[in-house]
Design a protein around this nucleic acid. Structure first.
Length: 227
DNA sequence: GCGTGATCATGA
DNA sequence: TCATGATCACGC
C-alpha cells in the first residue's frame, strides 16, 4: 500500500511541502496515493481538504485539535476563482451552545484555530472538473493585531447572543468577519443547548465561519494565489 | 452520533 | 449574482 506521510517537523518543512504541491492538479496528487478524484462534485465536498491533509502529513485525524498537532498549525484549503478570490466561507469550529459562561476570547476555540494557519488555495470554479483543479501557492498566516481585534469584536458579539440563549435571533448576518451558521448533516440534527431562561434545551448545531472577504485579505497579503 | 473536511443550492 | 441555510463524506 502507500505509506502515510510523516508529520512535518517544522513550519519550514511544512511550508516547503506545500510549495512543492503548487501547480499540481488534484487528480495528479490523488494518483500519488493511488486514489481517484470523486467524479460527482456534490459527493466530493471536503475531498480537496482531506487530500491535502494526507499529502502534507496532517496527524490530527479529525480530532478537535490543530491538523499538525506538534506544530500547532491548522490547515485550510480554500476554493478560489480564476482571480484567486475565495468563493466560500471557511469553517473554523463548532459553536458552544451550552456551558459557555465565563468563556473568554483568549481561551476560545476560535482564537486557538486562528493562531497559526496554513492556507492552500485550490481552483474551485464549477466549470473545472475536480481532477483538473490546480493547487495554488500556500500562505502561512497568523492574524495581525488589527485582524485579531476585529475578529475578537465579532466573537464577543456572537457569544453574547449565544450566552443569552438568543439562538432564534442569531443568524448568519451577524458579524463583520466571523459568522455563525448551521453545521450539521441536516436540519433535523439536535445538539445540547439551552433556552432564553437558561433551561436545558436542544437546537441545531452551529459553527463559526470566516467570511470569504476576510480570507481574501489573507490570500492577497501573499503574492499570487495560483502558482 | 459527533466533529472533522468543506461545498451545494436556493431564495433574496 | 451571492450569501444563507442545508447538505455530503469520512473516521471513530
Amino acid at each position: 500500500m502507500y505509506d502515510r506521510v510523516a508529520p512535518p517537523r517544522s513550519e519550514a518543512e511544512l511550508l516547503e511541502r506545500a510549495q512543492e504541491l503548487a501547480g499540481l492538479g488534484l487528480g495528479q496528487l490523488a494518483a500519488r496515493f493511488g486514489e481517484q478524484v470523486p467524479g460527482e462534485p456534490r459527493r466530493a465536498k471536503g475531498y480537496a481538504g482531506r487530500l491535502l491533509e494526507l499529502a502534507l502529513g496532517a496527524d490530527a485525524a479529525s480530532r478537535p485539535e490543530p491538523d499538525f498537532t506538534r506544530l500547532g498549525i491548522e490547515l485550510k484549503t480554500v476554493p478560489v476563482d480564476a482571480a484567486g478570490l475565495p468563493q466560500e466561507s471557511t469553517y473554523l469550529t463548532l459553536a458552544p451552545l451550552r456551558g459557555l459562561t465565563g468563556l473568554a476570547w483568549a481561551e476560545s476555540a476560535v482564537r486557538r484555530k486562528l493562531a497559526r494557519m496554513l492556507w492552500v488555495p485550490v481552483e474551485g470554479t464549477r466549470e473545472v472538473p475536480m481532477a483538473a483543479r490546480r493547487i495554488g501557492w500556500p500562505v502561512l498566516w497568523s492574524p495581525s493585531a488589527e485582524q485579531e481585534a476585529a475578529l475578537r469584536h465579532d466573537w464577543e458579539e456572537l457569544m453574547l447572543l449565544l450566552t443569552t440563549g438568543q439562538l432564534s435571533t442569531l443568524d448568519a448576518r451577524h458579524g463583520q468577519w466571523l459568522q455563525i451558521r448551521p453545521k450539521a448533516a441536516n436540519a433535523r440534527v439536535l445538539a445540547a443547548a439551552h433556552d432564553e431562561t437558561g433551561a436545558p434545551a436542544a437546537d441545531l448545531p452551529r459553527g463559526f465561519y470566516l467570511r470569504a472577504r476576510f480570507t481574501a485579505q489573507i490570500l492577497s497579503s501573499a503574492a499570487g494565489a495560483l502558482a
